[in-house]
Amino acid sequence: MPDLLAQAIATPGVAWLALAVMVAGLVRGFAGFGSAMIIMPVAASVLSPVEAILFLTAAELIGPLPNLPDALREGAPREVGRLLLGVLIGMPLGLWGCR
Rank of each mutant, 00 (worst) to 15 (best):
L4G: 05
L4I: 08
L5V: 15
A6F: 11
P12G: 00
V14N: 13
V14R: 12
L17M: 11
A18V: 09
V23E: 02
V27M: 01
V27G: 00
V27W: 01
R28D: 00
R28N: 06
F33G: 09
I38M: 07
P41M: 03
P41H: 00
P41K: 04
A43R: 02
A44W: 01
V46C: 00
V50T: 13
E51L: 10
A52L: 03
L54K: 00
F55I: 08
L56K: 00
L56I: 01
L56H: 02
T57R: 03
A59W: 02
L61M: 14
L61A: 14
L61D: 05
L61F: 11
L61G: 02
I62S: 04
I62D: 04
I62P: 05
G63M: 06
P64A: 05
L65I: 13
P66K: 06
P66W: 02
N67Y: 04
L68A: 15
D70N: 12
R73I: 03
R73G: 06
E74F: 10
A76Q: 11
P77N: 12
E79M: 09
V80S: 00
V80K: 07
G81L: 15
L85F: 14
G86A: 02
G86P: 08
V87T: 14
V87H: 08
L88S: 09
L88Y: 08
L88R: 05
G90N: 03
P92G: 08
L93C: 13
L95I: 14
L95Q: 04
L95P: 06
